[in-house]
Design a protein around this nucleic acid. Structure first.
Lengths: 228, 228
DNA sequence: TGCCGTCATACTGGATGCAATCAGCGAGAC
DNA sequence: GTCTCGCTGATTGCATCCAGTATGACGGCA
């Protein structure tokens, strides 16, 4: 193959494009509601429109993109109600994933969690915070060891990422204190081997965030019934 | 292309093909582990291989099909552990979906549930039983009214459908009695407006089925670590 | 006889080109 | 002045064709 074009047959151009667009959405480069044109993507990431279309279908199934037949694709945007539903789902699912990760909690893994929890207390950078927060929580999950739970939780995190970004910027100090305390309490519970408590902490943590999120309806677009 | 079918551009051949293959898998026409060749599907359902490929990607994301790059597609087959994980996930999710469906439980809807619960007690036909069982449970869910929960629960049901079929055939009378009793208890709880109890009944119902399922490892293939 | 390298075949992945469809805009009628 | 209808450009959906890869069979060699 050509060495200039990075379109090397690595087995799947559509996977590569899907990953690139996914990251672009998660990083905030593509905003919710933004139109996505197939040809733009094929130019930008190389390849024809065929792998682009397959990538878009993949992202649609992950809830990151909205496809309308014969019309186009948009970055998925959520209403407050939809975002709240995702958080309620997380509240039920993530404790289960945590439980499934039990045998994975070695001392070194727990030390790493503690380190991340501490590190994210120090930063003032929003993007760094979001990244560390995600790292922390997924450090408490052994997503690879599961069949559906890992991917499911990842998807639920991904679809709500833009709103987490918008919301985290306007969190007051008091609630941020509670947020960090939850993390420390979770680490301690895992260190003590108290899975029951750990599950509860995760659930409460997610619920707390949801309730606070619901106090910020201004970051969500008007609830357009067509944009389901 | 076929000349009899005018290949009506209904907006999406891939959707049509995906739906057809999905039903073929759910009905048991395609068995878990069975190879799927793209050209066969394009011949069978009309159209070229492009929409077939998009349909397969769709089904892969739904967990019904397993794709391997440059190699092919297979009907997804689960190990006992994976199937059990799906049931554990359902156990946490479906009570939530039930709760979200609360305002939908009118008298007529509940009467319909009761009718289905009664009807499925009468049949001896496996396929009819499976169909009624699904109808009953989804009658207790207002899946369309949700953003993720409805699709998620549908997917979890779909991926485990072949094993539900294989397992239900070998259920003893005593357990079947408990299974029906769960249904009636659920209807009663909903009629009484006792959502708390209804959630518990659903969770116990799913757990009971999972535990019984785990007593039938013979319906699952050998746990091949490659077939993740 | 058993194992390894080579080759043929079948299938998947991707590129290009064309037809169908939708959104936007302007002209005409009321 | 406003609403409706038809047209045009832009974009998607699909079919055909080509390149690349995995699988299985065959033959040579230890």
């Amino acid at each position: 193959m050509s060495e200039t074009t990075p379109a090397v047959r690595d087995g799947s151009a559509s996977h590569r494009i899907a990953e690139a667009v996914r990251q672009a959405i998660l990083s905030g480069e593509y905003q919710p509601g933004e139109r996505i044109v197939q040809e733009d993507l094929s130019e930008r990431y190389g390849g024809s429109r065929i792998p682009v279309r397959e990538a878009l279908r993949q992202l649609e199934s992950e809830g990151l993109v909205r496809l309308v037949a014969n019309t186009g694709a948009w970055v998925q945007s959520l209403t407050l109600a939809q975002c709240s539903e995702v958080y309620q789902t997380r509240e039920r699912i993530e404790p289960l994933l945590l439980r499934h990760s039990a045998e994975y909690f070695t001392d070194s893994v727990i030390a790493q969690m503690a380190s991340l929890a501490h590190e994210m207390e120090q930063t003032d950078d929003l993007e760094v915070f979001l990244d560390l927060d995600r790292q922390f929580h997924f450090a408490t999950y052994r997503a690879e060891g599961t069949y559906v739970l890992g991917d499911l939780v990842t998807q639920l995190w991904n679809t709500t990422q833009p709103y987490r970004r918008a919301y985290t910027g306007s969190v007051d100090r008091e609630h941020m204190r509670l947020y960090h305390d939850d993390h420390h309490m979770l680490v301690r519970a895992l260190r003590d081997g108290d899975l029951e408590l750990a599950e509860q902490v995760v659930a409460i943590h997610i619920r707390r965030t949801r309730v606070n999120l619901e106090r910020h309806p201004e970051i969500f677009p008007e609830p357009d019934p067509n944009t389901g």
